[in-house]
């Protein structure tokens, strides 16, 4: 049984997948689900109540509404950075592994150079110098985090290119583009997807860290920015747990759900190896 099929069968029953799906739905439907406008001011420092289930912050903004709208920024940055990194890593890794020769040397040389760059400090420096925005952070992380995936994809493509069905496709005369897109990459997807999940999780944590350090977009209320505001505006000192705990729990849950899905995909691949 192929990895893809077994993963598809087990993903819907995976709690991690259900949690992540719930977060995605909340992010997409936040304008309809949020009880209040996250920028509207009510009485500040209100504890959880019927009107404000997670209370309000120092500015009187409803925390639950902030949390729902914040999922858009956090998941958006995570998914955006992971998509850019995965596309770059897959294209570079697949080209290096399939064509070998000088292209492999050049692309892996570039990958090694990028691997040597201390990524988080660079993101902090760039975010500090440029105007902080969610798009900028997404781009910087996406353009830096493709390296390990490129290495992984290259190693898998080196295996797949030697398989008989790829050689058979070459003998028949299919162009390289056709072989890469229909023979090589579909048989590499099971190493790409778990890494993609982990990249989303890493990017979300990085975005939260940057926002906590005050290097995030102050106009975009992400979960990390909510914790930053709670920390810098007395939420921790005044014991307003409803202010800083929910975004912290959301970050933890979403990262755990992504790691759980990644592990599930890895396990289904191992099951397939054992079965074959």
């Amino acid at each position: 049984m192929s990895c893809g099929i077994s993963a598809k069968r087990s993903l819907p029953s995976n709690p991690g997948a259900l949690i992540f799906l719930a977060f995605l739905l909340i992010a997409l439907l936040s304008p309809y689900l949020a009880p209040h406008d996250p920028w509207k001011r009510y009485e500040p420092y209100l504890g959880p109540s019927r009107d404000h289930p997670l209370g309000t912050n120092d500015m009187g903004n409803d925390i639950l509404s902030e949390l729902m709208f914040g999922s858009r920024v956090s998941l958006g940055v995570g998914l955006g950075a992971a998509i850019i990194a995965t596309l770059m890593g897959t294209i570079i890794g697949a080209s290096a592994g399939y064509f070998r020769g000088w292209m492999d040397e050049v692309l892996m040389g570039i990958t090694d150079i990028f691997l040597m760059i201390p990524q988080i400090p660079l993101v902090i420096v760039v975010a500090a110098f440029l105007k902080p925005s969610a798009i900028m952070i997404t781009l910087i992380m996406g353009l830096l985090w493709w390296t390990s995936l490129a290495r992984i994809v290259r190693s898998r493509v080196l295996q797949v290119r030697e398989m008989a069905f790829v050689e058979a496709a070459k003998v028949i005369g299919f162009p390289d583009r056709h072989i890469i897109l229909t023979d090589v990459l579909p048989n590499t997807i099971h190493v790409i997807m778990p890494k993609f999940m982990l990249t989303v999780a890493s990017a979300m944590i990085a975005e939260a860290s940057l926002s906590f350090l005050g290097l995030g977009d102050p106009n975009a209320k992400s979960w990390g920015m909510m914790i930053n505001f709670a920390f810098s505006r007395g939420g921790f000192l005044n014991g307003c747990w409803w202010w800083y705990m929910p975004p912290g729990i959301c970050i933890t849950l979403s990262v755990l759900s992504l790691v759980s899905m990644s592990m599930l995909l890895e396990e289904s691949r191992e099951d397939e190896h054992v079965a074959s």
Binding site: M163, A164, F165, A168, A169, V171, G173, T182, P186
Partner: peptide
Amino acid sequence: FRRSVQMVFQDPESSLNPIK
């Protein structure tokens, strides 16, 4: 040349893409 010279491999299952 590509069309005129074809090859059939030793292991029949692995010479066909498993996901097609």
